[in-house]
Design a protein around this nucleic acid. Structure first.
Lengths: 162, 162
DNA sequence: TTGATTGCAAAGCATTTGCATGCTA
DNA sequence: TAGCATGCAAATGCTTTGCAATCAA
């Protein structure tokens, strides 16, 4: 039993809720997928192992995981909610490639420190922050350069990873 | 005629579009409202001056203003799109008070520099970035302190400004 | 006159809710 | 057994689209 599952069961008990096969499965699939998942994404994955599961249950369980501190909501601006692992995961920010959809995670203590300083100057108590850099990743830039040079180069397409 | 209106008319002409009373009015109301407006907000304001206007037109015109470089889309994570002035407005980021909804704008050259440095390290070409700090503003923190000290203190409520 | 624009109604999405049925504690 | 959970269908809220009528160039 992983630590995360214990956290989940503890939360379930504390809140007077019930353990179900669906919740177990959804948590399981979520834990072994180290990606940013939308509810839809997770629903599709879970469905492969239990086709009878409903979209609603996935939505509700993701809410539950968030409350339990295992997941965190992330919004990338496409008006869909994504979720990522939150338990004992260091805070990080995102670079999002607008060409291929790739998401690069990064962390900078320097950046965090400056943010805190700015907040302090405004006497603002930060509980959470979100930083997103939108642009073009190294690989897509390289491909763009190549295409400018060789006519007929193969188009470069990445699969978005959520 | 303000500079912004000229920019708008130029964009209209360049794109082979047409100038209409509705677009003029929507731009006008947008320009004199120095706030973060949702489409709904702007619709309500415009409606006061022309009750016959449709929601759809406001949506479409905000898209147009964004294309013309006069407005910028901002998403605060509530899955609604807000717009703010973009023409000759310095880039800035937002602190959002989760107690009263107040939005504080700020800018830090230091922060921008570090972001650029991080992006460069990943050979990522940044076209746009978004930084949001969520937390409690100075005023709400003060009120919270007062309430802890004086029982029966008046509750503090701010009007959200978009 | 031609083609863009408007505003209504309807459609589209992502997400939530009502509710009868099913299942856990 | 009591009451939470499930999954369907319907509802919701924001946004977009289809379309006939209208209007700018």
């Amino acid at each position: 039993m992983t630590e995360e599952k214990e956290v989940f069961l503890k939360h379930i008990q504390k809140a007077g809720l019930k353990r179900t096969a669906q919740r177990d499965l959804i948590l399981d699939v979520f834990l072994r997928t180290e990606k940013h998942l939308s509810s839809e994404d997770l629903y599709n994955l879970v469905k492969q192992e239990d086709p009878s599961i409903g979209h609603t249950t996935v939505y509700r369980t993701l809410k539950l995981l968030t409350e339990a501190g295992l997941a965190r909501e992330v919004r990338f601006g496409d008006n869909r909610t994504h979720y990522e692992h939150n338990y004992k995961h260091q805070h990080h920010d995102h670079m999002i490639c607008t060409e291929c959809g790739k998401i690069i995670e990064f962390f900078s203590a320097e950046l965090e420190a400056i943010q805190d300083a700015i907040a302090a100057k405004h006497r603002f108590q930060v509980s959470q922050h979100l930083l997103r850099l939108l642009g073009v990743c190294a690989e897509c830039r390289r491909h763009a350069r190549e295409q400018r040079n060789e006519i007929g180069a193969q188009p470069h397409v990445h699969v978005a990873t959520g």
